[in-house]
Simulated assay, not measured.
Amino acid sequence: MEEIVNKVAESSLEVFDLEDYFPDNHVVELDISQWLLEGFLLKEKDFREQLKNFDWSIYEDKYVGITCATDAILPAWTFALVAVYLNPVALKVINGNLEAITIVWYEDILSKVDYSSYKDKPVILKGCSKKQVPQAVYTLAIQKLMLHAKSIMFGEACSAVPLFKRK
């Protein structure tokens, strides 16, 4: 019997896996409807009082997306006021949902990655995530990888789709 050889393991192929940078509990969504009367009506005095008495420390060192889960019609200053309370404790605050703040997380993380190990090598941008990596993050990642890699494929080594090849 012939020995089975793992040609992928022996190749210079590098895998770039976005799950390695997944934020886990560092990225959260804050739904402000919890401070609205019946989830819809903003009574300014009550709203300000609830914000003042809220324990903001739970958002310490987190990326926070401020959202409203209901179809409440809110004054333009609402999200800005919540951001005033979040800013001293959170790492980053945006007006957006969990996906939007996750993309911001990845923008920051991918700008700090050392891509030198991918220099002039074939790279697989790993697909088939077990975690919810937003689709937009793959677009961010390929733009970074294109500056370094010889070629980029998407997916898994056994069934990769070619995306880029340096000329």
Rank of each mutant, 00 (worst) to 15 (best):
K52F: 08
I152E: 00
L110A: 04
W105Y: 07
I103T: 01
K119F: 15
P88K: 09
E29A: 03
I142L: 08
I4H: 13
I94H: 02
I101C: 03
A72H: 09
F47E: 03
I94K: 09
A136R: 10
E2Q: 13
Y59E: 06
V82E: 00
Q143F: 12
D120E: 12
L41K: 15
T67R: 11
G155Y: 00
L91Q: 04
F79K: 10
L147V: 10
A136G: 07
L110P: 03
A69I: 14
P134Q: 04
P75M: 00
R48Y: 10
Q143Y: 13
I73C: 14
L18F: 04
S151H: 05
F154S: 05
D55P: 02
P122Q: 12
L125V: 10
Q50V: 11
I142V: 14
G65Q: 00
A100Q: 03
W77P: 08
L125S: 05
S151L: 14
E44D: 11
D61T: 10
D55G: 03
A76T: 14
S116T: 14
V15C: 11
V89C: 02
L51M: 08
Y118V: 00
I73V: 15
R166W: 01
R166G: 13
K165W: 11
V89F: 09
M146G: 01
D61S: 11
K92P: 02
V8N: 13
D46W: 06
C128E: 15
V89R: 03
D71P: 14
G155Q: 00
F164E: 01
F47K: 03
E49H: 08
Q34S: 13
I4N: 15
E19A: 06
F22Q: 04
N95H: 15
V133H: 09
Q135E: 15
L163N: 02
D61Y: 03
R166K: 12
L145V: 07
D120C: 12
L98W: 09
A9T: 09
S111R: 14
S129M: 08
L125W: 01
G127A: 12
G127H: 09
I66R: 05
V133R: 11
A83H: 10
V113N: 07
E99V: 06
L86D: 03
D46C: 07
A90E: 01
V133A: 07
E107Q: 13
K45I: 09
N25T: 14
Q132S: 14
L30P: 05
C158M: 07
K131A: 09
V28Y: 04
K52Q: 09
W56D: 00
N25S: 15
P162H: 11
I66E: 02
I32V: 04
L42M: 08
E107F: 01
